[in-house]
């Protein structure tokens, strides 16, 4: 008996529609996040992450409504991120049905938001998302970026992860901006380094292209969960195939 490693499909949602395209085998692209979340729920996903990439603040009400509708039909944990700036945003998302809320940019500009919200709502629902890039100075160090990897912060990744854990984050969602969209696999060295440096769970994200990449995320990367979007959205693999492959590779998985 042991805690299973988690597989988390991720939906990027803009103004209430899933973007990046979703194309399940035999089913036409729906773009409807509620329908897609429900399908992943039925397919055996361990959690679902919903990233609201809507740029404008006016569209936030759409997000809350979508989260409410997903939560009423999905009976696995739901993490919601994107545009979370204040304690009131977190409360609204939790009230709408999110189980965890992911904080990214706001944590950098206002680290106390993480502390305050962890104290108020409990560490278990506060995820800190980190977008990192390897520095090209040969140091092997990684830097934190904002704005989809466009703006450097000067903050070193491992120190930041430790600080966020100390501030009460319950989990870290680590995305490699170098690997995101490449299908070359997760950035394993930084995943391993951060997983070793903190006592809270770490989700590997960015770059998965094959089922062996998922395995490596757990074995070499030491991740507690793996996030994937396109390999599932485009029907390259089903969640069931991913789980079967992980189980064959000796990874504890919920089947």
């Amino acid at each position: 008996m042991s805690l299973a490693k988690r597989i988390i499909p991720c939906l990027d949602v803009d103004q209430g529609r899933v973007v990046k395209g979703v194309n399940f085998v035999g089913i036409r692209d729906a773009g409807d996040p509620i329908e897609i979340a429900r399908r992943y729920n039925d397919a055996g996903a361990d959690e679902i992450t919903f990233l609201d990439i809507t740029a404008s603040h006016e569209q936030r009400d759409t997000t809350y409504r979508t989260v409410e509708q997903i939560a009423s039909q999905v009976f696995i944990p739901l993490t919601v991120g994107g545009g979370v700036r204040a304690v009131t945003d977190i409360r609204r998302l939790l009230n709408a049905g999110a189980d965890k809320v992911s904080i990214n940019t706001a944590a950098i500009f206002n680290p106390d938001l993480v502390r305050e919200s962890a104290e108020r709502f409990g560490s278990q629902c506060i995820v800190v998302a980190m977008d990192v890039k390897a520095l090209d100075d040969g140091s092997g160090r990684y830097e934190l970026f904002t704005h989809g990897g466009r703006k450097p912060t000067g903050i070193e990744a491992i120190e930041w992860a430790q600080k966020m854990a100390d501030f009460g984050a319950g989990e870290i969602l680590l995305t490699s901006m170098d690997r995101d969209g490449t299908k070359d696999g997760y950035d394993l060295p930084i995943t391993r380094a951060i997983s070793d440096a903190v006592d809270i769970p770490v989700i590997a994200s960015g770059g998965v292209g094959t089922l062996d990449h998922l395995v490596a995320g757990f074995t070499d990367g030491g991740a507690d969960a793996v996030l994937a979007a396109s390999i599932f959205h485009f029907g390259t693999y089903t969640v069931a195939e991913a789980k079967a492959h992980l189980a064959q590779s000796g990874i504890a998985i919920r089947v």
Binding site: M1, L3, A4, R6, Q124, D199, I200, P201, D224, A225
Partner: peptide, 22 residues
């Protein structure tokens, strides 16, 4: 604190995810 399993592998806290119930 510094929780680990019988093989000495680090166990993260929170205990987060799917576990078996006997």
């Amino acid at each position: 604190w510094n929780h680990s399993d019988t093989d000495g592998r680090k166990l993260k806290v929170p205990h987060m995810g799917w576990n078996q119930v006997s």
